[in-house]
Simulated scan of single mutants.
Amino acid sequence: MKLTVIGCAGSFPGPESPASCYLVEAPFEGRVYRLLLDLGSGSLGNLQRFCDLRDIDAVALSHLHPDHCFDMSGLYVVSKYHPDGPLHRIPVHAPAGAAAFLARGYGVDDPLGMTEQFDFSNWRDGGTVHLGPFTVASVLVDHPVPAFALRVATEDHSVTYSGDTGPTEALVELAEGTDLFLCEASFVESVANPANLHLTGAEAGDYATRAGVKKLLVTHIPEWTDRAEVEADVKGTWAGPYELVTAGASYDLG
């Protein structure tokens, strides 16, 4: 199982990284199965450094903010108009309403929207789906729009992704014992932050500690946020291994 950071900039693309997108790969039926966690603004370009877009098997969208889903428009173009012919219909798991929302975002006039290219399914709070070699568990978290944290597991390894969320105990149970806890930390402790929106590094570290994760990967840090301060906040609540992720980083779980 391998995780590659395609984009990790918080809230909007930054000069060093696209917005949120993570590629999870594992062997499946004699080949490599490729699952995308989010496909945010600017990420489709960087994704092509790591795989052929025709080899994407499924997409899991944590929520429907642009920095997590708007490059689905580009994937739609590739899927529908590729010179070698339309691609296979790609499963897309997302919050309810994603099919209509993404079609409006692209400006699709066809009554079918994007459904000939993408096979949409809705996340359920506490639900589980199977995608190739992966079992994906979803839990509702705390954000202004319906948003889900996801745990992607094979028989041997797991990656838990917070998506975007304010403080929520749901992350502790979902991330328990996970190999990699990919957790957002958009805020810092030194200021008064809006409620029900994002986490600080200290909150991410606290959840990692209580969940007993093996490694904490801190992500979704906006360009205007001091990474050093986020890191200091993390170290105040987490004593284990961690990284503030960067675009292009990869983590091989064997």
Rank of each mutant, 00 (worst) to 15 (best):
N46Q: 15
Y22P: 13
E243A: 12
V59P: 04
D125P: 01
L35W: 04
C69V: 06
S11N: 14
G107E: 11
G166V: 07
K2P: 07
D252S: 05
T160Y: 03
A9C: 04
S190G: 11
T178L: 00
C21K: 00
P167D: 10
V108Y: 09
E25M: 14
S162R: 00
V77C: 10
N193L: 05
K214T: 09
V5N: 02
N196T: 11
P133R: 01
L36P: 00
A175Y: 00
F101R: 14
P144R: 05
N193I: 05
G113V: 02
L37I: 15
Y81S: 14
F187C: 07
E116Y: 12
P144D: 06
G166K: 00
G30Q: 07
S41L: 12
G42A: 06
Y251R: 01
K215S: 13
S138N: 08
N193T: 07
L253H: 09
V213R: 03
H65T: 14
C51R: 08
T168I: 05
Y251A: 06
G74Y: 07
I56N: 00
T200A: 06
A228E: 15
A239F: 08
E189G: 08
F187N: 05
A94I: 01
P13K: 04
A195H: 11
D226E: 09
S11D: 13
G166R: 09
L180K: 00
L182T: 10
Y106H: 15
S17N: 06
P15N: 12
G105N: 05
S190T: 11
F50V: 12
S62M: 10
E184C: 14
V77N: 08
R49N: 12
V218P: 00
G132N: 04
G212A: 06
D125Y: 03
G240S: 01
A137T: 15
G236C: 04
P111A: 07
G163H: 03
V191A: 12
F12I: 14
G74I: 07
F187A: 09
S43F: 01
D84I: 07
M1R: 09
P83M: 09
T4G: 10
E169W: 13
F134H: 06
L150G: 01
S186P: 07
T135A: 13
L253C: 12
A249L: 15
V141S: 01
E189S: 10
F181R: 02
D55V: 08
H88V: 14
D84K: 12
Y161D: 11
H157W: 08
L53A: 13
T135E: 10
G127N: 03
P111F: 01
L87G: 05
G248R: 02
A100C: 11
G7K: 06
L171P: 05
T246C: 14
F120E: 02
D142P: 01
R34N: 04
D156R: 15
A239H: 15
P95L: 03
L75K: 02
L64Q: 02
K2D: 09
P194D: 12
L131V: 06
L64S: 02
R227Y: 10
D125R: 06
